[in-house]
Design a protein around this nucleic acid. Structure first.
Lengths: 209, 209
DNA sequence: GAAAAAATACCTGTAAACTAGTAGAAAAAA
DNA sequence: TTTTTTCTACTAGTTTACAGGTATTTTTTC
């Protein structure tokens, strides 16, 4: 008989929380001890309570999943993180794994697979669904490290995505158009893309804007 | 005592289906009679069964929510559609309403609001959450009709979003670069944007690519 | 306080994008 | 079958983007 796995769920959709509770409820070796809709409440809870697994959504109102994952791994090394999201973008998944996530599932997961994943992770193994494994395998070849954008670069990127031209961005930020051009060029280079159109697409995919 | 509302749920995430069943299960005047993960199965079911409300996700593998809504309203005028999605883009919501949806909720809805919405819709009223009402109200002013893109235009749009330049798109489709330029121009005009970068952003927002 | 990173600005040149028209042929809809 | 839409292609001119440099100043970080 396995020891009961204590699980906390973090997701900003009450419906998904209900779904997770219902899915894991059928397995009496998993106990959902708490659910949170934001990162702040999770960390408050973790200060006073001990659990085995955190089921973590990527898209939360107050903090992004990758940063939460990083913080958890740093503060609570024994706590296992299971990423759960609709995002199937390789860069997001890779970042999660890099920052200590022990598993990742898409939200089209079945109850059965979910419970298997929880147990496997709780026992110190890792778990990635077949779909995720394929995505990761396919992305081995085009392995660009995830670029870090500066504050100013993100600002420029947002404006570029809104269709504002270089001279007008310069005007808006009261800097030289030449500076805007430089930032723009650096963005394109950092993200490894060909032009602004693709830049916007990749930026949206990687949740940068 | 109210009559029991027969509900079918269409969502490609088993977790959300579980969540919906759990949320509606607490109200004994709502009966979830069937759940589907795609449009095809839904329509097969509707041919032989009668229900009151369809809870419909926008993002399904085989068909988009707007088209499903249009088909349901056309074939089964008495059937009420309640849109349920994470998409808070005004154009998507407007299209759903235009094609007969009686209500729309975001997936961050609570169980309570969900049951209220179901009953209200079942009784012939409409229901939009406060958040959705605000989104719709804010979008009254910038009221551009949703542009219809042709097949060729969508093709060009996809390639533009991938960062492919006009001459190379022309080469790929074996048409004149001048033709590609024309399509590109029409796209920018139809979508009411300033340039390719913004075009890509809007196109992604409106789920065109 | 020194070193590193980021933000600023400039130059030169080429390629592509955008503006604004027109217009015929093919395909789809009425 | 006529009408409308879509796809195609053209001319000509302006603006912006992109490539590949260099370099100073300001801000963080160590």
């Amino acid at each position: 008989m396995k020891e009961v796995a204590k699980v906390v769920v973090v997701d900003d959709h009450p419906l998904v929380i209900e779904g997770l509770k219902a899915s894991m409820g059928i397995d009496n070796t998993i106990a959902v001890v708490a659910c949170f809709e934001n990162a702040k409440d999770l960390f408050t809870f973790l200060k006073r309570n001990t659990v085995h697994v955190v089921v973590l959504d990527i898209n939360l109102p107050d903090m992004n999943g990758v940063d939460i994952c990083k913080t958890i791994t740093h503060k609570y090394p024994h706590l296992k993180v299971l990423g759960l999201s609709t995002y199937n973008d390789p860069s997001i998944i890779k970042q999660m794994v890099k920052h200590g996530a022990k598993g990742y599932l898409l939200k089209n997961v079945t109850s059965k697979e979910l419970t298997v994943a929880i147990h496997q992770i709780r026992e110190g193994l890792s778990y990635f669904s077949a779909e995720i494994q394929k995505i990761l395998a396919d992305s081995i070849f085009d392995d660009k490290p995830v670029p870090k954008l500066t504050r100013r670069e993100k600002e420029i990127l947002t404006l570029v995505a809104e269709g504002i031209t270089t001279p007008k961005i310069a005007e808006q930020l009261t800097i030289s158009p030449l500076t805007v051009e430089t930032h723009r060029r650096n963005l394109i280079q950092k993200m490894g893309v060909a032009n602004a159109a693709q830049l916007v697409k990749i930026a949206i995919e990687q949740r940068l804007i």
